[in-house]
């Protein structure tokens, strides 16, 4: 799978587990996740199953113009 443009070896079963493994608190404000070009609502993170070829984007707002 790919996470934020980098190849990644899938070890977790769900998006919630993946975030936890990365030390990302799912309660962190302003986070958003998309899998294969589709946004996954925050309430579905823990139940969202991952597949080996998933392309995951994890973003948050930053300073911008």
């Amino acid at each position: 799978m790919r996470i934020n443009g980098k190849d990644w070896l899938l070890a977790e079963q769900s998006l919630g587990e993946l975030l936890a493994a990365q030390g990302i608190d799912p309660a962190t404000r302003y986070l958003a996740v998309a899998i294969n070009g589709t946004v996954v609502p925050r309430g579905q993170w823990s139940a969202c199953r991952l597949a080996p070829d998933d392309d995951i984007e994890i973003v948050r707002p930053r300073e911008g113009g």
């Binding site: 990365q22 030390g23 302003y30 994890i58 973003v59 707002p61 930053r62 911008g64 113009g65």
Partner: peptide, 19 residues
């Protein structure tokens, strides 16, 4: 005020400017 949307560091997401 305008902000950008960017990938987070996989090292963890601390407090950001947006907070």
């Amino acid at each position: 005020v305008t902000v950008a949307i960017r990938r987070i560091s996989l090292d963890g997401a601390g407090e950001s400017l947006i907070d």
